[in-house]
Design a protein around this nucleic acid. Structure first.
Lengths: 262, 262
DNA sequence: CCTGGTGTCGAGCAGCGGGGAGCATGGTGT
DNA sequence: ACACCATGCTCCCCGCTGCTCGACACCAGG
């Protein structure tokens, strides 16, 4: 067994198991404890793993095992927050408001819990949680009604599938805020998750007015599945980082474009 | 068990259950109370959880000292667990299993995450969370499919209302585990929440076989709303604390009564 | 409001298992 | 044959763990 191959095997194991002990590796690879320790020392210097007492673990694994959400929700917070504030201004007391799953809509939800009482319809467990906890803590005088659409849960905490779409068919929304993964001049609004796209299409169908929330980094990004073409939505809220060409296209196709200053 | 793995397990448990007690963690992880306390201390410094008397909770979670966290978590846990273990034995790989909201069904869910892969249908956000986190942590080889029924959220974390009932009409369950607030010779199985009762009736209608989980303290308790009469369910699982008169009635009306020894 | 009982918390100490330095050995390339 | 490198071994140290005991928090009863 060559050292390089052994190193690779160790890294593989750590990535697979998240944490691994020196003694297990030694037995599994048929080498001594010392050798494994030295390997781990080297690999730590190379930044491929992190050494801990008794073994090794993934580097920087101190955080949650859902890297997507936590990371994304800290990224671009100022732009997202500005977009959320702008969007919240569209909401009036008593409205039935739809919120798709996503980090930008989540930022909006954080604004809305402190706003006037409304009826919220969402397929995001996290967003429903947000309102639920706010109501439980009594932070809002009159609490909003939250309807969580059912279905199967995706890794990004969205509920999708036939249950979700058929539930949406029964509902009518005054206003839908849609988070997207990408927007493009020809492909329109897209997401990488097929099931989520289907659910979002149902959301759009149920809403009288659709507003897309997307920061400027979303322009030109294509997910595999289309949610809607540009002219199917009524408004886009983005931020001033959006290129002038993108602004022109959106202005023309969507009709209404709002740029939220951070 | 490596410290890092243990820390991860603790954080997972806290995120899944919102509140955990030191003693439960110690037993579950096979380490001493002191070790768990020290781990919790470290994890608190890292901001991954918050320490409370007797255990730990999610950081920033409003459900600080709900009236009787102490009480609720210690009360009847052994009976509930015994009932849950007994119930879990009825579940076989690939089944479509319904779980109503409630603490007893939640205890059952904790058993089921480590069991064979099944399809779970529930209206409890907490139970869905449980499976979701277990799957994300990769603790189960083949993860179960979880369908969360939508609707409005009650204070006890159940999703109810027309959305929930209409979603249940589309589904068929091999087996339903129903948690109830009270059972009585004449009133049958009852709950204090009208909306929850309606949803639970929809659950019963969707299931080919219904099993009620209820510890002995539920006997003679009446909620305002009836879910089902005694003869409408196929089996009751309770504990040996159940009075002999109650045993006789249940045996006669339900047909099958199982008492789980703690 | 006070008081007792139960259970939890924290500090200190001892045992144990893993970590690291230095040296001997074997295998390989020159 | 020689030099070099990787490996394994041994001894000593250190961190982790569990135990014990005194202090404190929470709950129940008067």
């Amino acid at each position: 067994m060559l050292p390089a191959a052994r190193h690779q095997a160790i890294v593989d194991t750590v990535q697979r198991e998240r944490v691994v002990r020196v003694s297990d590796l030694a037995q599994q690879l048929g080498v001594s404890l010392m050798t494994v320790r030295r390997d781990i020392e080297l690999l730590e210097e190379a930044g491929r793993l992190e050494r801990i007492h008794g073994g090794a673990k993934l580097p920087g694994d101190a955080s949650t095992h859902e890297p997507g959400f936590e990371l994304k929700s800290t990224q671009l917070t100022s732009e997202k927050r500005a977009i959320a504030v702008e969007a919240a201004a569209l909401v009036q007391e008593g409205m039935a408001v739809g919120l798709s799953a996503g980090t930008t809509t989540w930022a909006l939800a954080k604004e809305l819990v402190n706003g006037p009482p409304i009826t919220v319809v969402t397929n995001s467990v996290r967003i429903a949680d947000l309102f639920h906890h706010a109501a439980a803590a009594g932070r809002t005088h009159y609490s909003s009604t939250v309807i969580l659409i059912g279905g199967q849960r995706t890794p990004s905490d969205a509920l999708v599938g036939p249950i979700a779409t058929s539930a949406l068919k029964q509902l009518h929304l005054d206003l839908l805020f849609l988070g997207v993964h990408g927007m493009d001049a020809v492909a329109g609004f897209t997401t990488p998750n097929l099931l989520e796209a289907e659910t979002n299409r149902a959301f759009v169908a149920a809403a009288r007015k659709t507003v897309v929330l997307a920061d400027h980094t979303k322009w030109g990004v294509l997910g595999i599945s289309s949610i809607a073409s540009l002219d199917e939505v009524d408004e886009v809220i983005s931020d001033p980082g959006l290129g002038s060409e993108a602004q022109r296209v959106l202005q023309e196709k969507v009709g209404k474009l709002r740029l939220a200053a951070a």
